[in-house]
C-alpha cells in the first residue's frame, strides 16, 4: 500500500523508530528528575545538566572513539552541574529557581565556550558507532520488528531503566526516604531520615540521568555537538516528570508520546504532506502546555517542592 508514492509500512516503521529514539533522552532525564522533584527540589538546572552531558559526552567520545566512555563523560558532566546545584540549594539554601537558571546559563556559556575553543565551532562528528543487536524472529515482524527489535544496545539499556527506577522509587528504603523528604522534611528528619544526604543523592541521580540523556543525544544518536543543542528538552523532561505524576511507567509513556510528536513532523514531511517545519518545531512545546492544561489539578505536587530545609526552622 502506498501513499503519495511512499510505502505506508516504511512510513510507519520510520515514525515508530524515530519516535522511540527521540523519546529516549526525554525518558531518561525525566526518570532521574523524579527523584529530585520527589525530594523537594525544583530542578530548573536540568536543561544545563543535559547540555553539559551533551558536550562532555561528545568530547569524551570524540577523543576516545568509544561510546561507553562518551556516555561516562556525559554522566560526569551532568553530575558536576548537579552537585553545584545541590551545594547551593541544599547546603546554602538559596532559592532553587535562581540557582537552577544560573546553572542553565552557566552550562550554556561553558559548553559554547569550550566547543568554540576546542573545535573552532565546526561540526565535526565523533567517530563512534553504537553497536546494534537484532533480536531473532521478533525483528522480522513488520513495522515494530525493525523499529523495536533491531536497535542499539544502549537503546535497550535506556528502556530497561524504567522498571529499575520504578523499583528504586517504590520498593527501596532510598525511594521511601526520597518520597518522605519531599512530603515533609521535618517529619522525615524526626523519623531519623538524613534529609540533607537524601536530597544530595536525589539531585546527584537527577544529574547523572540528565547527563546520560544528553550523552545519548550527542553520542549515540547524532554523534555531533551543536551549541545549545538541547533546545529546551531538559525543560520538557522536567514537565513530563510532573505530567507523569512522578510515576516511572507513566513518564515513559509520556516521553514516548512526545517522542512521537517529534517524529510525526519528520514523517509527514517525508510523505510529502505540506506542513511547515516551524509548525512541527513548536509541536512539543505546545503539547507540553496542552498536557499541563488537561492534567491541571489532577496531580498533587510534593508538598515541600522548592522549599529549602533547615533543621529547627519551620
Amino acid at each position: 500500500m502506498t501513499l503519495n508514492g511512499i510505502d505506508v509500512t516504511d512510513f510507519l516503521t520510520a515514525m515508530l523508530a524515530t519516535g522511540l529514539l527521540r523519546a529516549v533522552p526525554l525518558a531518561i532525564a525525566s526518570l532521574g528528575d523524579v527523584f529530585a522533584q520527589k525530594a523537594g527540589l525544583l530542578n530548573l538546572g536540568i536543561e544545563g545538566m543535559m547540555l553539559s552531558g551533551c558536550f562532555f559526552g561528545f568530547h569524551a567520545a570524540y577523543k576516545t572513539e568509544s561510546v561507553v566512555l562518551g556516555m561516562l563523560g556525559g554522566i560526569a558532566g551532568g553530575l558536576a552541574m548537579a552537585l553545584l546545584f545541590g551545594f547551593l540549594t541544599i547546603h546554602l539554601r538559596v532559592d532553587q529557581v535562581l540557582v537552577g537558571l544560573a546553572i542553565t546559563i552557566f552550562a550554556a556559556g561553558l559548553t559554547g565556550y569550550l566547543f568554540r575553543d576546542w573545535y573552532g565551532g565546526q561540526n565535526v562528528a565523533a567517530n563512534v558507532r553504537a553497536r546494534s543487536i537484532e533480536i531473532p524472529l521478533l525483528s522480522d515482524i513488520p513495522i515494530i520488528g525493525p523499529a523495536i527489535f533491531h536497535r542499539q544496545i544502549i537503546f535497550y539499556i535506556c528502556w530497561a531503566l524504567v522498571p529499575v527506577f520504578a523499583w528504586l522509587l517504590y520498593r527501596t528504603r532510598f525511594g521511601l526516604n526520597v518520597r518522605a523528604v519531599g512530603e515533609s522534611p521535618f517529619a522525615a528528619d524526626a523519623a531519623g531520615v538524613n534529609v540533607i544526604r537524601t536530597r544530595y543523592l536525589a539531585i546527584g541521580l537527577a544529574g547523572v540521568m540528565a547527563g546520560f540523556a544528553g550523552a545519548f543525544l550527542a553520542v549515540a544518536d547524532l554523534r555531533i555537538f551543536t551549541i545549545g543543542m538541547t533546545v529546551g528538552q531538559g525543560f520538557i523532561a522536567l514537565a513530563i516528570t510532573m505530567l507523569g505524576g512522578w510515576n516511572p511507567w507513566r513518564i515513559a509513556a509520556g516521553a514516548i508520546l512526545f517522542g512521537m510528536l517529534n517524529a510525526l513532523g519528520d514523517s509527514l514531511q517525508i510523505v510529502g504532506v505540506g506542513i511547515r517545519t516551524e509548525f512541527i518545531g513548536m509541536l512539543p512545546y505546545i503539547g507540553i502546555m496542552l498536557a499541563l492544561v488537561v492534567l491541571a489539578g489532577k496531580t498533587q505536587l510534593p508538598a515541600s517542592l522548592g522549599v529549602p530545609y533547615a533543621r529547627g526552622q519551620r
Binding site: L84, I103, I105
Partner: peptide, 16 residues
Amino acid sequence: YFIELLEGLMLLCFAV
C-alpha cells in the same frame, strides 16, 4: 560565550 559563562558565574557567586 565567555560572557554567558561569566553571567552564569556571577549568579552562582551571587547565590553564595
